[in-house]
Amino acid sequence: MSAETPSKLQRMIKAGHLAVTSEVGPPRSADGAVIERKAELIKDYVDAINVTDNQTSVCRLCSLAACIRIKQMGLEPVLQMVTRDRNRIALQSDILGAASFGINNILCLTGDHQHFGDHATCANVFDLDSTQLAMTVRMMRDEGKLLGGFEFEVRPQMFIGAAANPFAGPNVDIRVARLAKKVAAGVQFVQTQCIYNMDTFKTFMKMVVDRGLHEKVAVLAGITPMKNVGMAKYMKNRVPGIDVPDEIVKRMGGVPKEKQAEEGINLAIEQMEELKGVEGVRGFHIMAIEWEEKVPEIVKRVGLYPRPQLAA
């Protein structure tokens, strides 16, 4: 986490607090008020708000515009940026634009394949991948240089993030190696895939700590509360790269339908309590999918409210 930026998220982590981030998914329309409403719901309970970039390849109001809105509300946005839809010209251009509005956090992603989304017949770009996007942001920030070699004065002050998925293939070893690679590319924080398999996650974190990677990158543990047993089954069977153990499906299914949402929240809170004690975990990224209103309750119950105030 060498380079210091004005990022509030970075300062929160540096101060030794467990950071809390959450996300806002922009609407599939030009209704900017949706973003403000969602941000309003969670603003006092998180340190920064991710804005997803056409997640699952479904076309939505753009991440950059939504981040600007959030910034103008006096909040701290994390600009998610996927390389699927834009080439290096567009990516760098958006980074400069974001920085011009004082956006100081970026999450570098490759993005889901468009096959999942609402425009499956489109051409994809993938000029860069997530690791290369991180390298690019670092170059722009630390060297004041674009990939094309052009040098400029006013640099984007970005705290550079990426995703990490301890549960994807081929194995945990390679997932740690890939994190190391992202760190080598300039990544300073990662938000992980939703954690349900605690054993795998702990194995991952132990390897991260053993290699000293936790000194170089802040790991924010990904939490997604389950709404019901259907969601648990769907994530287990249908979403590539998510590992939902059988006992979790069983537990969700073991309570009556009307109690399942509550059980999902309880489960998330238990997971977070357990994760607090895992070395290298520097905070949480709560992805409450279309369930933003539950974020305050989760943060309160897990004892992370009120959020610490940083000296200006």
Binding site: F126, D129, A168, P240
Partner: peptide, 29 residues
């Protein structure tokens, strides 16, 4: 690799298969 990544495998690689479809082996795996 379905996303022609040069630093893979992405987080959608599972059981040696690509996130796009289970008939595609993950190139990075």
């Amino acid at each position: 690799c379905s996303k022609r990544m040069l630093n893979g495998p992405c987080g959608g690689s599972e059981g040696g298969k690509c996130e796009v479809n289970k008939d595609i082996p993950c190139g990075w795996e």
